[in-house]
């Protein structure tokens, strides 16, 4: 997202080019999604929104990001390419803030689950010791 923002603001590159550049840097499943979206715009003459939705739906079938984050990205795509520079920036910032939030939440969840599993492990160990003696 931040790379997108940079290319859009400093180079005013067309969206398909921006997505291709970011895809080349990522070189993973997210990169493939960006590449598919760029192709949809340039080769299939789809609107940015339609192309983003198509690429995102394909990505969600292989990604573990969950429905909530999927909806977040889908909403981000609705404004893609059809708004002026300041609005486009606002949308990117909004999406980034939401994704940061989602990431923090995921990290917190991971930490709390890790604690639970750690306690469970300790209690299970204690239970085994008590049973044996």
């Amino acid at each position: 997202m931040r790379w997108c923002e940079m290319e859009i603001n400093y180079n005013l590159l067309p969206l398909a080019e921006v997505l291709e550049l970011v895809a080349a840097r990522l070189n993973n499943k997210v990169g493939e999604m960006f590449h598919a979206c760029a192709k949809g715009i340039s080769d299939e003459h789809l609107s940015a929104q339609a192309s983003w939705q198509k690429a995102l739906e394909a990505y969600l079938t292989v990604s573990p990001i969950g429905r909530e984050n999927g909806l977040l990205l889908l909403r981000f795509g609705k404004s893609l390419g059809s708004s002026d520079l300041s609005q486009q920036n606002n949308n990117i910032h909004f999406a980034c803030a939401n994704l940061d939030q989602a990431l923090k939440k995921a990290v917190q969840e991971k930490e709390s689950r890790a604690k639970i599993y750690r306690y469970l492990g300790i209690f299970a160990g204690l239970a085994v010791v008590l049973i044996l003696y």
Binding site: P14, I41, H45, A48, G81, S82, L85, Q88
Partner: peptide
């Protein structure tokens, strides 16, 4: 008209402001 405009601005309105 929207289709033509999207083709014109390459789905990148921000670049043609």
């Amino acid at each position: 008209m929207e289709y033509i405009l999207q083709r014109l601005n390459q789905s990148s309105l921000y670049a043609w402001e």
